[in-house]
């Protein structure tokens, strides 16, 4: 070594960033921050609404206003009718999507040539906002619940088909060889190897499909305003009642959160291993 070098003490980056916050806080930091973030948002909104700073053209909702509107709304039988209608549309639509999507997805994944034949159509419908098919659905099925169920299932269908087919295609080749080496029939290979391996993919498809289905409910109800939570929103807009409108929107938020929670339960039940990230669309 050249002369003039000297020994220096090692210092680390970690030393400079060591936290000085009390321990009780560090332990609960996540919940404390989440809660205060939400509380701050609600309080600022309420205060701003009260001192009249939130007076946009036709918008003047506040948290307390929403609660008031909600408490009035839940006492009306019509409201529960609307909720039941939207819930039925979502459930029936998702049911149809699942009932058609899983078998078709399995067929596309299992029979290579069927897959090739469906490819252009799948690509096209994947790229197309399915919601744009609404005017056609109205032509074919009218303005009633059937049309809305169809809209929901169209929205959800492709989110089920694509991951299901993907799941079948990515079944471990070794497992298939095991099946063949034991002289299992095609049918047995399918039910004992392919199907179980595909279930996690189907469930992750369901997760995406739920979001699509909800969009289907909203847009279909906006488009043909007969009954449902979407109609509450549009009618409130026309009456310039932004409190009631936000209550309607929050209902959709809550159903979105509940449904995605339900899917995670399903996932935990069936899915010991997770499929890849980039499955969406």
């Amino acid at each position: 070594m050249t002369a003039g070098t000297q020994m220096i003490a090692v210092t680390s980056n970690a030393e400079r960033h060591r936290s000085r916050l009390p321990r009780w806080y560090r332990r609960r930091e996540a919940s404390i921050l989440s809660f205060s973030g939400l509380a701050a948002f609600v309080i600022i909104w309420q205060v701003a609404a009260q001192i009249g700073q939130l007076d946009f053209t036709f918008f003047f909702a506040s948290p307390t206003g929403i609660i008031e509107a909600a408490s009035k709304e839940v006492q009306l039988p019509r409201f529960w009718d609307d909720v039941a209608t939207s819930a039925w549309e979502l459930l029936a639509g998702s049911g149809v999507a699942l009932g058609l999507g899983v078998p078709i997805g399995l067929a596309i994944g299992w029979y290579r040539r069927v897959g090739f034949m469906f490819d252009p159509w799948l690509n096209f419908f994947n790229a197309l906002p399915r919601i744009a098919l609404l005017p056609l659905l109205v032509l074919w099925l009218g303005l009633g619940t059937e049309m809305k169920i169809a809209a929901v299932s169209l929205g959800a269908f492709f989110s089920i088909v694509v991951p299901t087919a993907q799941g079948v295609k990515t079944v471990d080749r070794n497992l298939l060889d095991v099946g063949r080496s034991m002289d299992a029939s095609q049918g047995r290979i399918f039910t004992s190897i392919v199907l179980p391996a595909t279930v996690p993919y189907i469930i992750s498809g369901i997760r995406i499909a739920i979001g699509r289905g909800l969009i289907g409910v909203v847009v279909a109800e906006f488009y043909a305003q007969t009954k449902g939570i979407g109609v509450i929103i549009v009618k409130s807009q026309q009456a310039l009642n932004s409190d009631r409108m936000l209550f309607g929107i929050i209902l959709f938020t809550i159903s979105g959160i509940l449904l995605s929670y339900a899917t995670s339960l399903l996932e935990r039940r069936f899915q010991k291993w997770r499929p890849g990230q980039d499955m969406e669309e």
Partner: peptide, 20 residues
């Protein structure tokens, strides 16, 4: 990792020869 400065020691001192 202590020598490399990725972690810092709870006690004690590590000296390394600095180069120009």
């Amino acid at each position: 990792k202590l020598v490399n400065g990725l972690l810092s020691a709870t006690e004690g001192e590590i000296l390394v020869r600095s180069v120009a």
